[in-house]
């Protein structure tokens, strides 16, 4: 069954295990491809991962003049193809989340490919495998729907669906505030 990356931002503790694990994916040349952001370090320890959301209609791929950014049949937006990437860095500017990274030495863009050698066979990507807090999860659409019901906030905003972002994404994100919908046991 198809599974997706699902994010519950409120759970994050900033351990950056997701980034450490990213370097361990066989296809990642030991470079991590995503970000963990300190929301307001002078105030508190809140952090959140900033992961590629694998847009259905990705701005990075659209902006690429060389068709170097391929979309896998699973929906994963892949890293730039070495033989096609011309190093123009359009994609790094086009992405509304600032995800693609650029290797100046290789003159090559690299980004999260959802550990495609794993996720194409339904194996969770490294980040979602190790995340100690279940901020990053690997779920079926049914499980995601159940989550949506569980954390319904009455404002329709439990996923990133804001108009100025890039529209529909393959990765589903639960914004901070998940506990607002929970009824206390006593």
């Amino acid at each position: 069954m198809k599974k997706r990356l699902y994010l519950e931002l409120e759970n994050c503790i900033g351990c950056r295990s997701c980034l450490a694990a990213c370097t361990q994916c066989g296809g990642h040349e030991e470079r991590n491809r995503n970000y963990v952001y300190d929301v307001n370090p002078l105030l508190n320890r809140q952090t959140m991962p900033l992961m590629c959301l694998h847009c259905v209609n990705p701005a990075c791929a659209r902006s690429c003049p060389a068709q170097a950014i391929q979309i896998h049949e699973t929906g994963a937006v892949l890293s730039a193809l070495v033989e096609k990437c011309i190093g123009c860095q359009n994609c790094t500017i086009a992405c509304p989340y600032g995800i693609p990274k650029f290797d100046t030495e290789q003159n090559l863009m690299y980004k999260c490919d959802l550990c495609i050698d794993r996720s194409k066979d339904g194996i969770p990507p490294m980040c979602a495998s190790v995340c100690p807090t279940n901020t990053l999860q690997w779920l079926t659409d049914d499980e995601i729907e159940a989550k949506q019901k569980q954390f319904n906030l009455d404002n329709g905003k439990w996923v990133t669906s804001l108009p100025y972002l890039e529209g529909e994404t393959n990765v589903k994100v639960n914004l901070p505030g998940i506990l607002q919908g929970v009824t206390k046991l006593f």
């Binding site: 295990s17 694990a21 190790v130 100690p132």
Partner: peptide, 10 residues
């Protein structure tokens, strides 16, 4: 269940 902190991963 497969989870590790960054120390464990490395």
């Amino acid at each position: 269940l497969g989870k590790m902190c960054p120390k464990g991963v490395t």
